[in-house]
């Protein structure tokens, strides 16, 4: 299949391929060719795109062969792009709306406060993943590969379990949904309706993207680590 056709089918994949370092303008090249040129693991790319595209997609055998490092690296890139681009962009838009306003200023300030609250919640969530979950996942991977414990990875391995993560992996999207509900149902739009509308559309897109993102964590990363935990227990 041509890479261009994949993107035509689902424009939400544009930021996804960007995170892989793949830039648009690939002409008629196939997915295979584009991945090879950009040194992207083809199998992982396919699993990812499928999981993004189809909510019920669940890779079984393919799961085994995806390198954990690749998944973690990808998730980290996604986190960075949320915090550095998407969320910051929305924040900027809300701020400029606030600067323009006169009588609506009070309401926009409310929205800005709310969004800032959301942003710190999301940041906290991401930090927890990067500081605790990912190091754990990489330690598990290292143990499996070397088939032995070192002092360091043993400590990490015993300090956490993926089950813990699965339980606490609550949806950070709740606040986001509330914000758009409030903006749609309960606030009269300010004079600059274009900007206001574009903020709402951004919120929808961010929410959708976050949903995709958590699906990768829940359906690809977690099941894989559960399998690995089991085989570590069998090994020793």
């Amino acid at each position: 299949m041509k890479m261009a056709d994949v993107i035509q089918m689902n424009y939400m994949l544009i930021p996804v391929i960007h995170r892989f370092g793949i830039e648009l303008g690939f002409g008629d090249k196939t997915v295979d060719q584009v991945c090879e040129e950009n040194e992207v693991d083809l199998n992982f790319f396919l699993q990812l795109v499928n999981a993004y595209h189809d909510q019920d997609y669940f890779p079984k055998e393919e799961l085994q062969s995806i390198p954990v490092r690749e998944i973690v690296a990808y998730l980290k890139m996604t986190h960075a792009s949320y915090l550095n681009n998407t969320v910051t962009d929305i924040e900027q838009k809300i701020k400029s709306l606030e600067l323009e306003g006169n009588e609506d200023k009070k309401y926009i300030a409310l929205i800005r406060n709310f969004f800032e609250g959301y942003k710190s919640e999301l940041t906290e969530h991401i930090m927890r993943e990067e500081d605790v979950v990912f190091p754990y996942v990489l330690a598990v991977d290292e143990i499996i590969k070397s088939e032995q414990f070192t002092d360091k990875n043993k400590k990490v391995f015993e300090s956490f379990s993926i089950e813990e993560y699965e339980e606490e992996h609550d949806d950070v999207e709740e606040k986001l949904m509330d914000l758009r509900t409030i903006m749609i149902k309960y606030v009269a739009p300010p004079a600059n309706t274009n900007l206001y509308h574009s903020i709402i559309q951004d919120l929808f897109r961010l929410e959708e993207d976050l949903n995709y993102h958590s699906r990768i964590e829940d359906k690809v990363l977690i099941p894989k680590i559960i399998l690995m935990e089991k085989s570590i227990k069998n090994l020793f």
Binding site: L110, E174, D178
Partner: peptide, 17 residues
């Protein structure tokens, strides 16, 4: 009724109204 779940969302609604 409101379609708002979080406390901070409900707070914004309360202020708006």
């Amino acid at each position: 009724k409101l379609g708002i779940k979080s406390v901070s969302g409900l707070t914004v609604y309360a202020i708006l109204n």
